[in-house]
Design a protein around this nucleic acid. Sequence first.
DNA 1: GGCATTTAAGCAAACGTTTGCCTAATGTCA
DNA 2: TGACATTAGGCAAACGTTTGCTTAAATGCC
Lengths: 333, 333
Amino acid sequence: MATIKDVAKKAGVSYTTVSHVINETRFVSEDVVKRVNKAIRELKYRPNQVARCLRKQESKTIGVLSSINVNPYFSETLTGIEKKAYLEGYNIIVCYSECNPEKEKENIEMLLDKGVDAVIIHSLLDETRVPNLVNLEIPVLFLQHYIEDSGMDAICTDDFMGGYLAAKHFIELGHTKIACVSAEGNDNFSYRQRIKGWEKALNENGIELNKDYIIETDFHTHAGYDSFVKFSKMKVPPTAIFFYSDNLAIGGIRAAADINIAIPDQISVIGFDDLFMCQYTVPRLTTVYQPKFSLGEMAFARIFERIKDRELKPQKQLVEPKLVIRESTKRRA
Amino acid sequence: MATIKDVAKKAGVSYTTVSHVINETRFVSEDVVKRVNKAIRELKYRPNQVARCLRKQESKTIGVLSSINVNPYFSETLTGIEKKAYLEGYNIIVCYSECNPEKEKENIEMLLDKGVDAVIIHSLLDETRVPNLVNLEIPVLFLQHYIEDSGMDAICTDDFMGGYLAAKHFIELGHTKIACVSAEGNDNFSYRQRIKGWEKALNENGIELNKDYIIETDFHTHAGYDSFVKFSKMKVPPTAIFFYSDNLAIGGIRAAADINIAIPDQISVIGFDDLFMCQYTVPRLTTVYQPKFSLGEMAFARIFERIKDRELKPQKQLVEPKLVIRESTKRRA
DNA sequence: GGCATTTAAGCAAACGTTTGCCTAATGTCA
DNA sequence: TGACATTAGGCAAACGTTTGCTTAAATGCC
């Protein structure tokens, strides 16, 4: 691999000059520019980014910490980040916390060691670490997780609104026995916000919150399956179920087929995320859309802004979800 | 951020010694080791990997070039790579070619500039570049793509065998009108191998290859949908369809529901990949399993071996696919 | 006790850039 | 013509490590 010195020698100038030609950081006479560029071409020289990083203390690399990748929700967001990053000449190092706080912590340290210019965190397990993260010397952006007054820079879907829209839709279709598949966790988690929005819509419409109509579970598709079965076996089953993610709802749809319950004729179902698959399930899934790809793009755009202008104050950006009505919801019989 | 010099000063030794303590590269007296470690702890010192990379010419980072991420097939493989890499203290920079040869090329150059120790290519669009890639100064591993006698180091599922197994299954169930959703491309592409295997099974069993029973399409789910519709509208529709990927088969299943064709009663369907979703479609999809996660793990393991031992000769590793029988295939009526 | 050997650790160059400071040559103006 | 300003580009330090070479002190041996 040719270095800047090889280029300098070949062009008969100092390597300072070569550097300035490459970076256009000061005037160099036309003649010299030509000779340098010729040498660069002939030697197929490309600047060593590692050396540049060491000197300039910027790596044109950002770290992305995701919890997992197998849920298309995460991978689509990641794709948005990568795309935008590429356009600005940045690369991304991705780490998966695998829902393990230990690995999450370890990963962040590895990223810092590698000299990333910023970190996007799409997985937050150990909230006690937020103050450390917020005070890192590099910009940190949180995706889909926000803690009030924490100084976090965050981009979130308005999950509360999303849950609200879902419940509202059920209500407008005449449902009153409305169940919900939820999960444990504190209210900062995005899925908790969805549930809170759901509760609000019920309250607003004078529908009592029946504790039996709430199941707390995890995020696995199979949990959605089991929850659906449980609900439908109740003495007075709900006529509508809100799953906090499509992934769970897909499990529910499969369960319905297995136990011969017709969706939406007997039970209406709504998911959340609008995964690509929702258009292909049988029946097609009514769900709350969130712009996963754009969310990724926005995340990079924001972090890029903060890299350029280190004085920017942290802020929370909310993006609007949208109800997408398909075939899994229906007016109550 | 503390540097090695800060540690040295605090511990009252030269920074050479600190380096040796950290890397255990030569004997240091017990007493000094203790002092150094104490200083490291107190300053929360972590070695700067960028500087280390510049000096040692190794970055503990590998590049992964994938075509896209949204198909769970890619993301699962990527997860396997990441997991194994993490365990060895490596990070991965991921790039998506987005099926664009220009971006593919550009990405590889960015990766080299960043000083990655190796590259895993899970996306090969421009085969003319293989000689360049094979001769890079760093190890390059190809995933799911192999060209005979090209000197490629590769790990591939035995796609030919997979296609063969799929067709064999249909034949054993008494089907003779066996169709196939394929795609254009040269025979080095993995999906082409699947089709070749499928053809072989038909040939071996004296089943004529009906050109009308082959549709060449792309990889989008919707193409699977359309293909299914086309097949079922034929004068003599096939009784069995092999889709070269689950993604397509899922489209087919949705089409069947829309046009009221019963799978498997009227038409049996097989996919390829064994995506997680196959367990949740209605009906559950019979498919050819390939170990996506392990494939990723194997890929890192192999590339790691080659990083350690640069004399290793390129080789092709084949992993066995497996037929997974679920609900979408049935004995011919 | 004197010399050779071993031991423990320091010095400084190198990795490939960027950039503050300096300088030689040229131009400008009275 | 002399003083000064401007122009074009070179020198060398710095970024934070690793590592070959060196050295002072301690030890071993006869």
